[in-house]
Amino acid sequence: MNIFRIGGDLSHLISIFILLHKMRTSKSCIGISFKSQVLYLIVYVTRYLDLLWTFQHSTYNSLMKIIFIGSSAYTIYLMLNDFKPTHDPNIDTFKVEYLIGGSAILALLFPYKWTTSEVLWSFSIWLESVAILPQLFMLQRTGEAETITTHYIFALGAYRALYIPNWLCRYLFENFTDPIAIIAGIIQTILYSDFFYIYYTK
């Protein structure tokens, strides 16, 4: 495992910690897109189904997968229960049907194999690349975002951005390549790029 891969995974963990910390300390979920959070849960559940049969292959991967699914479900639980009064659906209006539909079409057209787990894996990769859009859309609508929310989005974006040099390293040193993940990862990073730019300049 190279430094970029570890950095990416660490960044992903940090983003989750920031999000949960923000909700618990402010006792609210203001500024957090519920739709994006639901998309992430769908992403993790469809991608990490392989926990059922690859659990023993890598303790690191399996542990991370459980953390990602668990924390994502917990975030949604908090938004639906404890902090429900602070959630305003009127500003969280992005049409996620298109994101889910588009990802499903791409997954069905170009999976590595036409098996349930491969199609779901591919679906999760495409969906992850666009899952932040409801959150960015919400940020744009409300204008000023809390600093903590921008830190969350930055850490989450850095995760997939760091996977790009990781793929380059793996291509050069391990002859490893994963076209679906790479193309979707680049799209994902481009979607964040405008946000990254604003984050750096503010």
Binding site: R5, D50, T54, H57, M64, Y163, A181
Partner: peptide, 10 residues
């Protein structure tokens, strides 16, 4: 078709 390699990334 070759077996799909194990996904070793997150």
């Amino acid at each position: 078709v070759a077996a799909t390699p194990l996904k070793d990334e997150l």
